[in-house]
């Protein structure tokens, strides 16, 4: 049994549904906030994910950080050193997808060159008539950035646990990899 602990940064443009998703994560998919209320700082949510078919678990400290341009700089001070990344865009907004590159740059500046496992999440998959970003395009970009891609709908409560599980698994495999390295070290 291993109890892992990870600081998970939740970022992306304003109004893509980061907080709606994080409340979905937190409430096990039962609570969708119908009224939009912009996050102006950072909100911390704690979520424990058990990894199926193992006795391992990952405690995720989810840092839900404001997406609005003018607020980002202030929020960055509270990011600390992230262990995982959850980058969210709105499937009905080409612009929110185009901005993901800049979010990656911002986040990488906080990582001291360390590998940061993560996921790219296309949210609002229920609004299929208004979709502006094709799955294949998003998938390809995610892969180029070393991220796993998921589509979710916080409103329709679809697939919301997939990104979390993916993050937990990525952190577990990073841990196992590092543990193996340490087991094979030679003495100082």
């Amino acid at each position: 049994m291993v109890k892992l602990r990870a600081r998970c940064l939740l970022v992306g443009d304003a109004a893509v549904g980061k907080s709606a998703l994080s409340h979905m994560f937190h409430s096990e998919g039962t609570l969708f906030q119908k009224n939009y209320s912009m996050t102006t700082g950072v909100e911390l949510l704690l979520k424990c994910v058990n990894i199926p078919e193992t006795n391992d678990s990952v405690e995720l400290y989810i840092i839900d950080s404001a997406g609005k341009e003018t607020l980002v700089e202030g929020c960055e001070k509270m990011w600390g050193e992230p262990s995982l990344l959850c980058l969210v865009f709105d499937l009905t907004s080409e612009q929110s997808f185009a901005n993901c590159g800049r979010w990656m740059e911002r986040v990488r500046a906080h990582c001291r060159g360390l590998h940061l496992p993560g996921v790219l999440v296309g949210n609002k998959s229920d609004l299929s008539a208004r979709r502006e970003v094709e799955s294949s395009v998003a998938q390809e970009w995610a892969q180029s950035q070393g991220l796993e891609y998921h589509e979710t709908s916080a409103r329709a409560m679809e697939n919301c646990d997939a990104p979390l599980l993916s993050l937990a698994r990525a952190f577990q495999s990073l841990y196992q990899e590092r543990r193996e390295t340490i087991q094979n070290l030679s003495p100082g």
Partner: peptide
Amino acid sequence: TFWMSTGMF
């Protein structure tokens, strides 16, 4: 043998 940290500082 060793003790290993399991995430965050």
